[in-house]
Design a protein around this nucleic acid. Structure first.
Lengths: 156, 156
DNA sequence: TATTGTTATACTCTATAACTATA
DNA sequence: TATAGTTATAGAGTATAACAATA
C-alpha cells in the first residue's frame, strides 16, 4: 500500500490513491455511526449462532426479565415501533421462545417458554462477551464514562 | 401516564403497564445503538430539505474535499462497500452534483460540479447544526472526550 | 376516545456473489 | 493477478398509514 506522508494531498489537488483526510472524523455523529456499526456487527455475528438478530435477542431478554409485558411497553423500552414489534413477536412465538399469557385478551402479556429462557440466557452471554471485547479498546472507567455520555445524548 | 415509584415491578411478577427496568441500558452496545439512532435521525431530517440522505451527503462532502478521488477510496474512508458506492455515485451524478474527471478511464476520479459545491456547503452546515444541537446534552470538553472514546472502539 | 395489535408498504443501509474492465 | 466498477439480490432496521379490537 502506498503511503503519502501525513494526510495525503491537499484539498485542491487531484487525489493520489492513498489514505485520505476525512473532516467528518471530527463529528460526534460520524464517530457514533462508525462505532455503533462496528460493535453491532460483532454482536450480530455472535448472536447468529443462536439464529437471533439483535432486535430479536433484545426483545427476548426483556420479555424474560418482565414476564407479562405487552408489545407496546416493549417497544417503548427499546425504541421499536409498534408496527415493527408485531412481526418480531410473531417470529419469537413461532420458534417457541415466547408465548402469550392470556390468549383471549387483546392487550397481550408475553412471557418466555422454557426454551425461551434458555435462549435468553445464551443471548445475555453473547451480549456480555461483546461488552468484554471492548476491554482492549476501553479501560473499565472509560467504559463507564462512555455510557454516561451516550445516555445524555438520547435520553430526555 | 401512570408512574410506579422506581423501576416498576420486580422481574418475576406480571408487569403493570408502566416504566420498565431495562438491564440493556448498562451495555455500551445498547447505548451506542440508541444514541446513534437519535443523532442520525435528526441529521436525516435536516438533510431531507436538500433531498440528500446521510450517505449521499457524506460522499458529496468528501468528494468536494478531495477532487479526483475514486469510488473505492471513498468507500474505504467512509466504510461503505464498493458495491454500494456504485448506485450512490450514480444518483449524485444524475442530479448533477458530481461528475467523472476522466470519462474514458476505468478507475474514475470524481469531482463536484458547481451545483455540487453549493450543495456540499449546505450539507456541511446541516452537519454542523446537528453537532451544535448536542451542546445542551454535552459540554464542549465532554464532546471531545466522547469523540476520543468512540474512535478507540472502531479504529484499529 | 385512546390504546393496542396488525397488515401493507416503502426507504435506507448493509452484505455477498458474479461479472467485466483495467493496471 | 490484483484492483475497480457494476449489477442483482437479500436481509435488517425503521417509518407511515390505515384498520379492527379493546379498555
Amino acid at each position: 500500500m502506498t503511503l503519502t506522508r501525513d494526510a495525503g494531498a491537499g484539498p485542491n489537488e487531484p487525489e493520489s490513491d492513498a489514505e485520505i483526510s476525512n473532516p467528518l472524523e471530527f463529528h460526534v455523529g460520524y464517530q457514533l455511526r462508525r462505532a455503533s456499526a462496528a460493535i453491532l456487527s460483532r454482536l450480530a455475528s455472535l448472536l447468529s449462532d443462536l439464529k437471533l438478530t439483535i432486535s430479536e435477542a433484545s426483545v427476548l431478554v426483556l420479555v424474560d426479565d418482565h414476564p407479562g409485558i405487552t408489545q407496546s411497553a416493549l417497544g417503548r423500552a427499546l425504541g421499536i415501533h409498534r408496527a415493527n414489534m408485531a412481526p418480531l413477536a410473531a417470529i419469537l412465538t413461532e420458534r417457541g421462545l415466547i408465548e402469550r399469557s392470556q390468549p383471549g385478551s387483546r392487550s397481550i402479556g408475553l412471557k418466555t417458554t422454557k426454551l425461551g429462557r434458555e435462549q435468553a440466557m445464551r443471548a445475555r452471554q453473547c451480549m456480555e462477551a461483546n461488552e468484554d471485547a471492548l476491554l482492549p479498546a476501553l479501560a473499565p472507567d472509560q467504559r463507564a464514562a462512555l455510557i454516561d455520555l451516550l445516555k445524555q445524548i438520547w435520553q430526555v
